[in-house]
Amino acid sequence: MEQTAQSKSRYGMVIDLDRCTGCGVCMVACAVENNVAPAEQKATERTGVTWLRVYPVSNGEGFPANDTVFIPMTCQQCGNHTPCVSVCPQNAVEVDPSTGIVGQIPQRCLGCRYCMTACPYHARYFDWWDPQWPEGTEVLLNPDVAPRMRGVAEKCNFCHGRLHAARTKAAAAGRKEIAAGDYVPACVESCPSRAIVFGDLADETNEVSRLSHSINTFQFLPKLGTAPKIFYHSAKEWVRKMADRAPLA
């Protein structure tokens, strides 16, 4: 698809951690939307595939001073020195210059997992098993997203199927740009607390762009210089301090 220079978007998210209740709808909606298979019997939290994972994080205090925050962690769509892109030996990871979205091409991936060691956010997942749905469920799969075979890496791509559908819709209507409401990833759409705001960060009139600059908004691991496009927001000081702390410090 040819992109004109002015159609350069930078899709990103601002996730309000104070609103997140940790219910997990986003994770399930993501798996259903992107044809991520249910866990194999032996799979664990370290071998499962969750493009979006909500981590419960405690402030480390005892009862009742304990506090927990739920951190939805997805591919951070790094905008600078994208760690996974440069390491892939066969160009199976690409940043779409027109959207800023880091895309994974599972059909080209040889499963070396170098990208997974490169990703500091642990947002990449390997298919340790063949994807298996219970018998009969194949008809319930999303026709817009190709299921991945075993032995490849996969990750969040901001619901590429939905972006494609929005582009098709725009093209059908003779528009060059997609309408903001037409492109909403499954996690954003399903969040009961409306904790995730999604949109084009490059568009300064946009809510997501405004929120990304607002007070108490932060990124994880900003010092790595990877310029993630997922922003987090919390009015709780301990949450922001935690995000700024070195691990094991």
């Binding site: 940790g22 997990g24 994770m27 399930v28 993501c30 798996a31 991520v36 249910p38 866990a39 799979a43 664990t44 939290e45 071998t47 499962g48 595939v49 969750t50 994972r53 909500v54 981590y55 419960p56 739920f70």
Partner: peptide
């Protein structure tokens, strides 16, 4: 995804 593949 919630019960087995994460700690949620």
């Amino acid at each position: 995804k919630l019960f087995q593949e994460s700690h949620l």
